[in-house]
């Protein structure tokens, strides 16, 4: 498997505050990776650097060996923590927009998923509940045939039944050689679909391991280990 994402000595400072300190990460294709850490640990900063929304203070991030830029954005499908979509737009117009914008967008897949979740494509985004909006955004992101999916808190506002469907959607829709990086607090809910986890704390990587290794070595779930490591 080839390396999709590589971060080398990645550091980000906001004034005196160091959000990320010499982070090294290497992600290969075909994995679902959980980026886990308490609030303010640097998860979103890292994700924003990977997506070219922030520039690192030092160090570098590369996708397929190339620096972050137009080429990397073509192969990364990103779900941000805040919506950037125009709330006055109807879903079908947003889909047209995505189809225009991304050459790897699968329109049929998007409509299929909307139908499964009983979301009306003629509805405007602003008339939808928080959870439904989140579902729409995730559908848009998962409808691309990307190499790397970066999902920042994808299931936070969604009810448990829809959560199961969404996890299933993620499992059945990403391409075999693609990798998914998911940041979340809801570890117990997504633990079974992850194969690797990265614990991040105060801008440092505390642990990088596979889910099965954690369970074998500690005899406990990733969720339980997280609660232990980050006990307040």
């Amino acid at each position: 498997m080839s390396t999709i994402l590589e971060c080398k000595n990645l550091t980000k400072r906001y004034g005196n505050f160091t959000a990320l300190d010499q982070i090294n990460i290497s992600l290969e294709g075909g994995h679902i990776v959980g980026l886990l850490g308490p609030n303010g640990s640097g998860k979103t900063t890292l994700i924003k650097i990977i997506n070219g929304l922030l520039t690192p203070t030092s160090g570098e991030a590369t996708v397929h060996g190339k620096p972050i830029g137009v080429e990397s954005k073509k192969v990364i499908s990103y779900l941000p923590d805040h919506t950037y979509l125009n709330k006055n737009m109807r879903i079908r117009d947003i889909i047209d927009y995505f189809e225009d914008f991304y050459s790897d967008f699968d329109t049929k897949r998007a409509y299929d998923m909307l139908a499964k979740l009983s979301i009306n494509p003629t509805d405007k985004l602003k008339t939808m509940s928080k959870g439904t909006k989140e579902k729409v955004q995730l559908i848009l992101v998962m409808s691309r045939h990307a190499d790397l999916y970066v999902l920042d808190e994808p299931i936070a506002g969604v009810d448990p039944a829809a959560r199961d469907y969404i996890l299933n959607t993620i499992l059945s829709n990403y391409d075999e050689n693609a990798t998914i990086l998911i940041s979340t607090h809801l570890i117990a809910d997504i633990e079974n679909i992850l194969d690797q986890v990265i614990f991040i704390h105060n801008g440092h990587i505390r642990l990088s391991s596979t889910v099965e290794e954690i369970r074998e070595q500690n005899g406990k779930s990733v969720d339980a280990l997280f609660r232990e490591v980050f006990k307040c």
Partner: peptide, 13 residues
């Protein structure tokens, strides 16, 4: 893939 979807587990697992 299908089994992973049914069980809701990672395909590699």
């Amino acid at each position: 893939r299908e089994l992973a979807g049914i069980a809701a587990v990672n395909p590699n697992t």
